[in-house]
Each structure stands twice: as structure tokens, then as C-alpha cells.
Nucleic acid binder design. Structure first.
Lengths: 199, 199
DNA sequence: GAGTTAACCTAACACTGTTCGGTTAGTCGG
DNA sequence: CCGACTAACCGAACAGTGTTAGGTTAACTC
């Protein structure tokens, strides 16, 4: 196929198709050839719109994080922290399969820095020292990312025989998968509330 | 080379060589061919001792986590939580490059479950309900894994120009890389203390 | 000493991300 | 209107990945 009359590809179309694949097949399920195939195109054609796969993933990550809202600090810094964390978690858990990518490396994403700047400023305004503000922001991110990884409650088998005898205190762990989502949310809320209250 | 008089390979040698590569070159720096080369062997030979690369990584992860100590709950459950979290973090931060692998999937690792069982039991003994115990354990893991990812303080540039003007509250963020390790530890301790105090 | 097993090898398969050079449709200058 | 040029795609290839099949020979067992 030569140059088509109306372009088949665009950065946006590529990004959203890639995110759909990630959501459906996981992070490892995304390959450039598969992505191209779903767009009705050959793999090489993608590189006219995207520099590298890593860059594509970064762009997707940024767009996922762009929905995070850090407003709400005017009322109360505790409430601001809680809202910010909830918003972060909502963004991440709407596309959980991309979280391992975020976990990989030095981010330095524009969006993250901007939000972090606001968060830091709000904490300093509330009376915390700069160093304390940095550590509190870090702690909040620990809880958010830790809960978003959720290799915790989703990592349980649903076969009771896997636990009985060997792990006496986990004798009902096989019920976890059924309530994993709810339990993850409640665990996050508990951790967040305890953290903020304990500051 | 036919069968050598004394075997060149063993599961242990393979595991420790692989972990050394991961520590040195990162998770992506480990390939079966490279691992084989460092052991003076061809890649295919590894598969006589290791089922798959994924299994190898799981075994390595288990051995890293095997140093975690969950004793210390006799004294006080708060102290027990703190010691457990510190021990976990120590294990993870001694081999930080394998943490992204842990972040990937349903773990269900023998070691983790065993430790989780003890933790859960200790919390129930201390008077928490089973559900609360589960959530508290999850919250603790959030902080441990979140801090071990450390895509936070290690993700900052050391060039002041990257922050000035654009991020007014982060005007000293360029200093972070120099104190990243210490700051990460302090942030972890702060988050842990706040979390436990807030329960 | 024969037969079996264990430990290595070479070669290959089906993938991966990415690049090079080609082909053609659309667009712009004269 | 037509030539030059660019934009958007394709086919083929490269170097790398995890993994398997089948071969070769040393060491062990009876």
C-alpha cells in the first residue's frame, strides 16, 4: 500500500490503541507488530509517528496520569492529601496494567513534577518544613503506588487446599479473589487514613 | 564440549550469577545467553537446571525475600510491624533491580505467604479482626513496596535549570540525587511511623 | 564391558524492537 | 499544468530474545 488518501495513523490513534491492548492483554501483550496489525498497518509504519516503544509507553503513562487532580488543599492539608491520593489511585487503577511500567524507572514526567510541585507547596504553606514536605509527599506516593501494584490481594489462589494446614491463619484466603477489588480499596483507605492521621 | 568431568552448572551457581547480573546491569540486562556466557557455557545448557527464565526470576525473588524476619511480635504489635517492615525493606533495597519484577504479577510465593501468615496471626492475637489484620498487612506492604520502587527520589535531575521557573516549589530538587538514599530511608521511616501511629 | 543417564553442545524456531530503501499519493512553486 | 518534494505507507532485513530438538560424549551402574 502506498500513501493512502486519508492517513490511517496518528499519534492519538496509536496511543489509544496501544492502551487498549495493554488493558486487555497486559504490558507484555503489547508488541509493535500486534499494535500495527490492530491498526491495519505494518509495524514499520508506526515509527513515522512514534519515536520508540519506550517513548510511546511514556506518553501513554503521562496521559493516564493527566487525570490526577491535586486541588482541594485550600480547605485543609489533610483533606488535600487524601483527595490527591484518591485521585492518583483512581487514575492508576483504571489502567492497572501500565503500573509496572511506571515502577520501572526514573520518571521525571512533566505531569508528575507539576503535581508534585503543587503538593509540595501546599504542604509548606501548611507549616511543614521543606524536607518534611518532601518526605510526606514521598510517603503518600509509596501508599499510592504500593496499592496500585496490588500484587497483594490479587495474588491469592481460590483453592482452599492451597492454604489449609500450611498457613493456619490464612485459612480463608481463598475467598480473597472474590472480594479483591473491594478489599484493595478498603486497604488503601485504611492505610491512607492511618498515614494522614499519624502525621 | 561433551559432558565435563565436574559439572560446570548448578541451580545455585546459576541463581547467584543471575542475581549478580541483575544487580550490576538491571533487570533488562539479564538474558539467558549473557548469563550462560558468564558461566562459560551455552544458553541451552541452562535449561537442564532451570525450567524457564520466569521461574529463575521467581526463585531469585524468593531467595531475596527469604532474609525477611517477622519475629518481634511478642513484645508489641506496633513494634512488630515496624521491625517487619524494616526487614522487608532491607531485603528489597539490597537488590533494588529485582523489585520491578516483584511488582509484575500474582506472587503467591511460598516465602511471602508464610511470612504473611505469621503477620496475620500476630495481628489477630493482638485483638484486630481478621479483616482488619488483612488490611493492615496490605497497608504495610504498600509502604514497603512503594518505597522499594523508589521511582520517586531517584527520578530527579541534578540540573537546577530543570526546575527553576517551571516548578517554583521544587527549586532545590536538583539536590535530591545527592541525598536520595538517605532521603528515601527517612521518607520510609516517616511513612511507616505515621502509618503505625495512625492505626 | 555394555547400557543408561547426565551434561553439555549446535542449530533452529518464532518472536521482539528498530532501521533502510522503495513506492506512491498528496501538496506546493513556477 | 507540471515537476519537485514531502508524507505515509510497505517489504525485507538486522540483531537480539526465550526456548526446544536432536546430537555427542563423559560418567555412572549392573
Amino acid at each position: 500500500m502506498p500513501r493512502p488518501s486519508t492517513p490511517l495513523l496518528s499519534s492519538d490513534r496509536i496511543r489509544s490503541a496501544a492502551l487498549a491492548i495493554i488493558d486487555r492483554d497486559g504490558l507484555d501483550g503489547l508488541s509493535m507488530r500486534k499494535l500495527a496489525a490492530e491498526l491495519g498497518v505494518q509495524a514499520a509504519s508506526l515509527y513515522g509517528h512514534v519515536r520508540t516503544k519506550d517513548q510511546l509507553l511514556n506518553d501513554i503513562a503521562s496521559s493516564v496520569l493527566s487525570t490526577v487532580d491535586v486541588s482541594g488543599f485550600e480547605v485543609d492539608w489533610r483533606e488535600g492529601l487524601i483527595r490527591c491520593a484518591r485521585s492518583y489511585r483512581a487514575a492508576l487503577s483504571s489502567h492497572p496494567n501500565i503500573v509496572p511500567f511506571l515502577a520501572y524507572g526514573p520518571a521525571g514526567r512533566e505531569e508528575s513534577l507539576q503535581r508534585l510541585d503543587l503538593l509540595h507547596g501546599a504542604l509548606v504553606d501548611a507549616g511543614w518544613s521543606r524536607r518534611e514536605a518532601t518526605m510526606i509527599a514521598a510517603g503518600l506516593m509509596y501508599i499510592v503506588f504500593g496499592s496500585a501494584l496490588s500484587s497483594f490481594s490479587s495474588g491469592f489462589s481460590s483453592d482452599p487446599a492451597d492454604y489449609t494446614d500450611r498457613y493456619p491463619h490464612l485459612d480463608r484466603a481463598h475467598l480473597l479473589p472474590g472480594v479483591a477489588r473491594e478489599l484493595d480499596r478498603d486497604s488503601f483507605e485504611l492505610a491512607l487514613a492511618a498515614f494522614v492521621r499519624g502525621l
